[in-house]
Simulated assay, not measured.
Amino acid sequence: MKQHVICKRIADEAVAALIEEVQLTPKPGLVDTENNGAHHDLSLTKMQNSAHSLHNTFYQMAMLSFNRQPTVEIREQFGAIGRNGEKEMFAVTENSNTHKGAIWSIGLLCSAIARRQGQVLFPQVFNDAAELANLPDQYIPKSKTNGSKVKENYGIPGAREEAQQAFPHIQKFSLPAFLQAAQRMSLRDAKLHTLLVLIANLNDTCLLHRGGPEGLELAKQEAQKLLTNFSISNMKKLDEFYIKHWLSPGGSADLLAATLFVINMSDKLKRGAQHGKVELHVSGKSSGY
């Protein structure tokens, strides 16, 4: 019973984080409550349906890893659950790729938290996710994805490597950025600010796939400018700019959702963010944000 309750909460919060990310408005080039961003095949309804379709996937991933050390067998079972989750996602999205990257990233964090029976410690949660991500899975399909093509063409690591390296962009950028911004902004603005931090610092393979190195650099530069002149009106202008240039930072959106998921799973961080006062403990040291 304890295992079911904890794993259900993990899955509930994983889906909630995906919904929280897609409903965040206004976002540059991404689906939100105002428009579909730089996407002809996506919509708010489709993104929300996709998120809800993944509840069982995240639940199964958590149940698989509950109070268990990672093994190759668990990694292979994790991969099978993820690929089944992709099929369920594609079934409700008419074959649109809405959350393939998030299934990997957030799924690994679901497993990491379940391994510790629902406990979230920093940076252990990211190291645990990386431990599972680095194990081999002989059943990974050989077919190329947009992310693998970008890696092959430009030598840029993607979502797989981000997880295998213990989510450095969450640890170094998005998590501290959000906790700091929550002290001086509304929660909505803090989330938007965090998204900009990710876009400005991540070599987003979605941006690379759409705009090549030039598009990636352009998107990063514009996001960095807005960080020093943040406002909702400027966010809307950036959204128009990204749409005009057909740019969509999907990788950054996935990492934002993963960041929100980890925060919401940590009751202390969630309460602190809501009240504008958070202390994040990393490697035995306390860092105030």
Rank of each mutant, 00 (worst) to 15 (best):
H281W: 08
L238W: 06
L226F: 02
F230C: 07
L280Q: 08
A253K: 13
L260C: 11
K285R: 14
V282W: 09
S231P: 03
A258V: 08
S286K: 11
L280I: 14
S252A: 15
S266L: 01
K277G: 09
K237G: 07
K277A: 15
H281C: 08
G272I: 14
W246F: 11
V278P: 01
K268P: 01
E240D: 14
K270N: 11
N234P: 03
G288R: 12
H245I: 02
L280G: 04
V282G: 00
F230L: 09
K285L: 12
F261T: 04
A257L: 05
K270D: 12
L269R: 07
A257S: 15
L269C: 06
K236N: 02
R271M: 08
P249A: 02
G284W: 04
K285D: 06
K225Y: 12
N234Q: 14
N234Y: 07
Y242M: 09
P249I: 03
M235E: 00
S248R: 00
E240C: 01
L256T: 05
T228H: 14
A258I: 00
L226S: 07
R271Y: 13
S233L: 08
N234H: 13
W246N: 12
L280T: 08
I232N: 04
F230P: 00
S283T: 05
S233D: 13
L269G: 03
F261A: 05
V262S: 00
I232Q: 06
W246A: 12
V278F: 09
N229F: 07
H245L: 15
S252T: 10
G276S: 10
G251Y: 04
G250P: 09
F261V: 06
F241E: 04
S266V: 02
Q274E: 15
G250E: 09
F230Q: 04
E240L: 06
I243L: 04
H281R: 02
A257M: 08
N264G: 01
K236S: 10
S286E: 11
I232L: 13
S248Q: 10
S231D: 05
F261M: 10
L260W: 08
L227E: 01
S231H: 06
A253I: 03
K285A: 10
K244I: 09
D254A: 07
K236Y: 07
K270P: 05
H245D: 10
S287W: 13
M265F: 05
T228I: 07
G284M: 12
I263K: 08
A257Y: 00
